[in-house]
Design a protein around this nucleic acid. Structure first.
Length: 153
DNA sequence: GCCAACGTTGGC
DNA sequence: GCCAACGTTGGC
């Protein structure tokens, strides 16, 4: 089992919205590295949900992979922001996964919290200039972050 | 709104 | 295949 971290701008799609809807297809990823990470995700993998580009950036809870990679339908929709004219149904470029709500944290694990934790010093998300919206997280990192956030039960 | 750090594109 | 120009991300 792998662990992941996925970023979302709460103005676009928040963790609260995921809780309300229950599940969501993670479409619109247009970065090859992030795509490849999604392609290696398995059903049941846990996902740290990170709110970016907002007042308080940080990890707000945990989602779960509920469908493995499939063709991202938005790449074929000319009206979509994520339309890719170079992608064909015979040879699609972009994949997405479906994620489901799992559990919220008792408290936000903020970006400063992450930076202050010695156990998290190697996290990809903390590296300068890292803009990947999907990154792998080690089991130890996941455990440390869940400890800081405190899972609701 | 600024800007650093990237990824992508396209001319050559 | 190089690399300059451009676009995007995301913290501050």
């Amino acid at each position: 089992m792998h662990h992941w971290l996925m970023k979302s701008e709460p103005d676009e799609f928040s963790f609260q919205e995921l809780e309300r809807k229950g599940k969501e297809p993670w479409t619109g990823v247009r970065n090859y590295q992030a795509r490849n990470f999604m392609r290696s995700a398995k059903v049941g993998d846990l996902v740290l949900f990170y709110h970016s580009n907002c007042d308080e950036p940080g990890i707000i809870g945990v989602a779960k992979v509920s469908k493995e990679a499939f063709d991202d339908p938005t790449q074929f929709e000319p009206k979509s922001d994520y339309y890719d004219a170079k992608s064909t149904k015979d040879n699609p470029r972009w994949s997405c996964i479906e994620v489901s709500f799992h559990q919220g944290f008792k408290r936000l694990v903020s970006l400063p919290d992450l930076r202050n934790s010695a156990a998290l010093s190697d996290m990809l998300i903390l590296r300068p200039g890292n803009r990947l919206s999907v990154t792998p997280v080690t089991a130890a990192e996941f455990k440390a972050i869940a400890g800081l956030g405190g899972l609701k039960k």
